[in-house]
């Protein structure tokens, strides 16, 4: 795929991103940040492909370090976001449990 097509995708993603994220209210900004934090764990995709195909010890160490960093980022990000969101309860839900 050509670079220009990728720039197209980038620009459209910027527009879509601003649209959906501007709608998130400030009460949810912490989970928004920790969830988007988990999303950039997507770099694990790149780290895996790299680690599967590198030659040489130095390159393998770099690739494995990337896998380690990205997997902590990804898994930790989703787990912590879920923990935060589990605490958000409406008045109705809070009343039912107590």
């Amino acid at each position: 795929m050509s670079l220009i097509a990728e720039i197209y995708i980038f620009v459209l993603a910027v527009l879509a991103g601003f649209q959906v994220i501007a709608k998130v209210p400030s009460i949810l900004h912490t989970p928004l940040m920790s969830a988007t934090n988990a999303i950039h764990g997507i770099i694990l995709v790149g780290a895996l492909v790299l680690a599967f195909s590198v030659h040489g010890t130095a390159a393998l160490v770099i690739a494995l370090a990337a896998v380690l960093f990205a997997s902590i980022n990804l898994v930790g990000g989703f787990v912590v976001t879920d923990r935060i969101l589990a605490m958000f309860r409406s008045e109705r839900e809070a009343g039912r449990s107590s």
């Binding site: 694990l44 895996l48 492909v49 680690a51 599967f52 195909s53 590198v54 393998l60 690739a63 494995l64 896998v67 380690l68 960093f69 990205a70 997997s71 902590i72 980022n73 990804l74 898994v75 930790g76 990000g77 787990v79 912590v80 923990r83």
Partner: peptide, 25 residues
Amino acid sequence: APHYDHVVWVALVALLGSAIGVVSA
């Protein structure tokens, strides 16, 4: 994936990272 070299290493490191992620989170 076009190649699957170092699968064992990758799996171990990814599991380690996931475990660190879950515990700290």
